[in-house]
Design a protein around this nucleic acid. Sequence first.
DNA 1: TTGAAAGCGCTAACAC
DNA 2: GTGTTAGCGCTTTCAA
Lengths: 338, 338
Amino acid sequence: MQRSVKMKDVARAAGVSVMTVSRAFRKDASVRPETRDAILKVAEDLGYVFDSTAANLRSQKTDFVAVTIPSINNANFAETVAGLSEVLSNEGLQVLLAYTNYDIAQEERAIEQLLRRRPEAIVVTGGKHTPRARRLLEGAGIPVVEAWDLPADPIGHVVGFSNAATMEAMVDHLVAQGYTRIAFIGGDADADTRGADRRRGFIAAMAAHGLTCDRLIEAGPPPISMREGAEAMGRLLDMHPDTQAVVCVSDLSAFGALTECQRRGLGVPRDIAVAGFGAYEIANVCVPTLTTVDPFPRSIGEEVANLILHALDHPGERLIRKLSPRLVIAASTQVRSD
Amino acid sequence: MQRSVKMKDVARAAGVSVMTVSRAFRKDASVRPETRDAILKVAEDLGYVFDSTAANLRSQKTDFVAVTIPSINNANFAETVAGLSEVLSNEGLQVLLAYTNYDIAQEERAIEQLLRRRPEAIVVTGGKHTPRARRLLEGAGIPVVEAWDLPADPIGHVVGFSNAATMEAMVDHLVAQGYTRIAFIGGDADADTRGADRRRGFIAAMAAHGLTCDRLIEAGPPPISMREGAEAMGRLLDMHPDTQAVVCVSDLSAFGALTECQRRGLGVPRDIAVAGFGAYEIANVCVPTLTTVDPFPRSIGEEVANLILHALDHPGERLIRKLSPRLVIAASTQVRSD
DNA sequence: TTGAAAGCGCTAACAC
DNA sequence: GTGTTAGCGCTTTCAA
């Protein structure tokens, strides 16, 4: 089969002008239906594949939406991207994805590369960026969406929630269950900004209840794995054996912590309560089920997509969509009453 | 900041021709170092962002590598994409990702859309495609890689392994442990071809040992979740309470099955052995740790990337890279000897 | 509904 | 090391 069959070749074979072939490939253009069918058949027979690169240049439209996420290997961000892709692909838009590895310097590089592709809009995870990244986004001339966070000084649109505030509800719940010696397991404070916000929220919520906050365990650089969660739990139990409850920065580390309790013969929640964040599937399947926070990651993606579609039609508007994660109370933090 | 600052504007501001600006943006081009630095500074000050769409058209190079995966929300495929992206991005190549939802009709549409973007190479997961998808790939005139499988009739290059063969080692191990009444939990036979291959391999391996294969549990359309694994395990235990071991199509369903045993008060491996596939992190963290098969998903991605880099320099060669997954024996299938 | 001419913003090719 | 000319494969624009 031929490489580089062009519109011109299809046009010649179909006995029409290139412009008519061009129209035949656009669903909204006016071409006689029989002409279109004939052209598409000829194109298929010749093995013609439409060349977007040329169309993009001439029409100054790429139908790309650029997205940065910290890591592809994270069920929450993957869900967001899945929701985003699904909505956008129905509108003929394609996601162009880049990873930042939880590093704003890498984010800056990713943003620069992505903007060169001339996307219609760009979505970044989180609200902390290098000054240059911020400048690039501000000057891009396209809708910018910051997701998964509520930046104090947004660049453009926002679809997110307060990571810190989710910890209030969590600590309130634990205190209501009678726990007072509560620990937090999380990553390095500065790298994963959403995790750091949760830690900050945890500390604030403990203070609001007049509780001391002397059990903050560092589990290393993000993302915190199950194994790191288990190791951190081991250190916590060694240092503070009288801990009554532990909040983990994610369900993955929480599950790791849970297994460490299993290995040590500690009952959850009988001897110690464990909670996570993210409403990963495992939280709902493991034994006991894990108390967690559901940030509705797929909805975030869908909301971002809908916001972009709206913003492309209504330039100038700035939309802030504040979402409300839900505390999901499960067996791992509930005092049994039997 | 200005939208649509072009090379021409940078050239004028820097007092050089556009061609010199063009050269300044290519690391290999010959420009006087001082000239380049001056140009890049002027460009940054003007807020110029290089336009790939124009460069791509003129140079007939996009630096895209197209990739289809069944689902983004799968740690194994995510690892493959991560390995692929990392190696390719070092060479200035960017991954353009599309999802198929384990559906070859959707794969065909994804391939068509991806080829319109004129990628330098295309990677598809698996070796089963619609006739038209196959024709598109064959006629694309770029390196084609089928990954995660060993197709009987490859389109181009291959980086994969025999999913069926992995089950031989698994069944051999279980039989060596003394198990004979062994079940398989998997998805619908036709959708997830890799899962179907594992089931086929399981059946063949059982036959090779002279064992009957009357415990094949259908857990629904792929991907099989933890929850579906748990439900399938429930059905298995209800129908065949004397089952001694169960092989699950993935670690996620295996973990679900494990939790179902926990809920029913069955000891693993004391009362029943459980094994999975994929070497997901959970297999190495849960209690007991799960016997599984490690297909080295990140290596698959890295191998694919290296193969593509080689193929771009050596057209005409056809490379078949056959990988060997490793059986990882863990606590969940080992008869305790204490 | 269809066609002809012009050009999107870069870079290949060649000249100096 | 730098500049000039032409053109990548489409779509915009205008005309019929």
